[in-house]
Amino acid sequence: MSRLAIHGRDLLLDRSARGPSWLVPSLEVSRGERIALCGPSGSGKSTLLSAFAGRLAARRGSLQVEGCELVGASEAVRRAHRLATMGQALQDAEMISYLSTVDNVLLPLRLAGRPVGAAQRARAHDLLARLGLSDRQHSRPSQLSHGERARVAIARALIAAPPLLLIDEPTASLDPASREAALDLLFSAEGTVVFATHDPGLIARVDRAFDASIWREP
């Protein structure tokens, strides 16, 4: 097994033909490392996370994530790989509207066809409790604030204990206490964690930080 969780080389990314593009000559992230993609808004942090997750296909180059070459892989392969190896907390903290908080957290297990029993529910309850959401376990998304939904998204990313976590702006909508609880939980997770953030406090805690704007093509 490679010691690298992410290995990119000569990676060319763009969201549309007329939009900006990013060229990443070389990027290596070791297993267990915590890194941050930082930079101002529009610098490409979320775009890079999308590429690592296989949601955005690179136009050329090579991108190996958890042992799978994503460039040139079919969408089905990328989706299956994403489900098997990654936990994601997206910036918009989207949730399924008709599911309770706990059921939203358990969603990745259901999608992967893994059992959802008492043990998994207990883990979901524990994650939510550690994120300060003990009293919101059975709430619907419409009853939650944006900050609460962001914490549910973090619990959802962690539920399957994946080897790679891709966390987009985890602290943007959190109060200081919630922020600390969320970061403590994420930093205690096993596996590799990639943050997209411009939170200086978070950047100070990671092993390495990259300014995504240096890869943006003029």
Partner: peptide, 16 residues
Amino acid sequence: ERELALLRTLGASRSW
């Protein structure tokens, strides 16, 4: 559509 998009984002297969 947003719900289905979330499922795809999380990795749900077409068959799922």
